[in-house]
Every structure is written in C-alpha cells, then in structure tokens.
C-alpha cells in the first residue's frame, strides 16, 4: 500500500465520520441527501461481497466492515431516528436515483471481468460509486446555503477521490501488471463531478465566507 492510497482511505473515513458527527451533534441531517447515502450503502454492500471469501489483509477487512456499518447507520438515522428524520429535506432531494442504479446494473452486465455474481456486482459498485454523489450535489445546488460540516463532508469525499487517482498513477508507474481501463475512467468521472463544488469551496474559503452555490 502506498501513501496516496492510505491518505485516500483516511480522507474517505474522515468524510463519513464528519457526517456522523454532524448528525450526532446537531441531531439534524439538513442538507444531506438520503439518496446519495443509500447509494453509498449499496456500493459498499455490493463491493464487499468478497468479505468472507477472499482475505487480503486485516486492514482491508476491518475497513470494509467499518464502511458497511457506518453507511448503514447514516441511512438508518435519516430514515428512522425520531428526531434526525424530521430535518431531512425530502422536497429538495428528488433525484431519480433508481435510474442510476438501473443504468449501472445494465453497464455491469455488459462490462465486467467475469460473468459471475461477485464480479458483476463488483463492477456495478465501481460504476455506482462514480455517480452516487449526484443527488447530494443537486441537493446542495438547490438549497444554496451549505453548512460547514456538510461542506467539509463533500470536501473530504473529494479529497479521497483525488488521492485515489494519485494512487492509481503511482501504481501504474511502479507495478508492472497494473492496468486500469474502466475503473480509471469511472474514477475520473467521479472526480470531475466534484470540480465545480471544489471551485466554490475554494472561493468561500479564500474569502472566509459561508459556502454558497449558485442557483
């Protein structure tokens, strides 16, 4: 494991912890898209089907369990927690995420390594992760104002993507048999989706003002 991948994993973990902290501390999930959170939970569950069949390292297994549990906990809080669920912006969170799921499923059925249950769902999770942030970005766009913790959540998520791309470049240069193709393209798509957000995040940070997205 190289430093870029480790930094990517850590910023990914921090983004989830920031989100849990926001929900726990403010008892509110305002500005958070339930649809994006459901998609991430689905991404982790379908990608880590190998949890019990292929052992890579204790680090990998622990992180997989942590990601599945924390993403499920967030979805549970937003749907079921007596107080938290009241602050959910249902009227603004109208992205048709089922179409993303169906589109990724069709793509995974066409483009995959091997036609097995695990491999198809692994490919599905890679494609879905690339677009899972869309409902969240649309929700931020619609609500205009972004509170600090929500802004930091998306910031860390974007940092995770940037570190993973550096990791792939590093692996491409140092490992003989490392070829990316489809995963790299999905990774680039996912990272590009953040570019717009990062621009406004930078502007608000530079001016030391509240993050506001144009409508």
């Amino acid at each position: 494991m190289n430093i870029f991948r480790f930094a990517g994993d850590m910023t990914h973990l921090i983004s989830i912890l920031v989100l849990l902290l926001k929900i726990y501390a403010t008892k509110s999930c305002a500005g958070i898209s339930l649809k994006t959170q459901e998609l991430y939970a689905l991404v982790f569950v379908t990608r880590y089907l190998d949890l019990f069949t292929d052992f890579i390292s204790v680090y990998n297994s622990v992180m997989k369990v942590v990601f599945i549990l924390t993403s499920s906990a967030i979805v549970w809080c937003m749907r079921r927690h007596r107080i938290v669920k009241r602050s959910y912006d249902q009227a603004l969170d109208t992205f048709r995420h089922l179409f993303l799921v169906l589109g990724c499923l069709v793509l995974a059925l066409i483009v995959h390594d091997k036609f097995t249950f695990q491999e198809v769902f692994w490919a599905f999770s890679i494609y879905l992760e690339a677009v899972a942030i869309l409902p969240q970005l649309v929700l931020l766009q619609r609500s205009g104002n972004v509170d600090n913790l929500t802004g930091q959540y998306v910031f860390f998520l974007g940092a995770y993507r940037a570190f993973y791309i550096l990791n792939w470049i590093y692996r491409y240069l140092t490992e003989q048999h490392f070829r990316l193709w489809i995963s790299c393209i999905s990774g680039l798509v996912q990272t590009a989706l953040y570019a717009d957000f990062f621009y406004y995040y930078y502007i608000s940070w530079k001016n030391n003002s509240k993050l506001q997205l144009p409508s």
Binding site: R5, D9, H12, D50, D54, I56, S57, N60, M63, K64, F67, H112, D113, K114, E119, W122, A123, I126, Y164, N167, R171, E175, H177, F178, R179, L180, W181, I182, S183
Partner: peptide, 10 residues
Amino acid sequence: GYMSALKDEL
C-alpha cells in the same frame, strides 16, 4: 483480468 488489480483496494 483488467479489474482484478483493484481488488486489493477499498
């Protein structure tokens, strides 16, 4: 395969 190289990642 072209994807298996990423199986050791998260």
